[in-house]
Amino acid sequence: MRSETLKGHLDALILSVVSIGPLHGYAIIEQLRLRSGGAMTLPEGTVYPALHRLEAAGLLSSYWSQTAGRRRRVYELTRRGERELGTRRAEWREFAHAVEAVLSPAEPSGPTAVPA
């Protein structure tokens, strides 16, 4: 999948991935790839600034954690982030439903009246 296609949805995708629990940057990118069946391979460089942007917007919070002797910055969803994710999901469903309705091959249903 082209990264340009994903750009407009990057925030919602990150929020959705982080909603499963606190994750560090690499794990977020891995989850995006795994959950999309390998279809979403974003350039990693775009994800870290996005994480900082979402944190600045109050949708994510972050803290340092010590794992196997390594310090890692871990991100988790805030309450505001949960609400935002809910909104984004509802908007996406509506949008996807509408696009699906238009893109699906029209079923033959007899002659259609064309307005004059």
Partner: peptide, 9 residues
């Protein structure tokens, strides 16, 4: 990219 995000915030 970081400067754009952080500068805006």
């Amino acid at each position: 990219q970081f400067a754009d995000v952080i500068g805006s915030a």
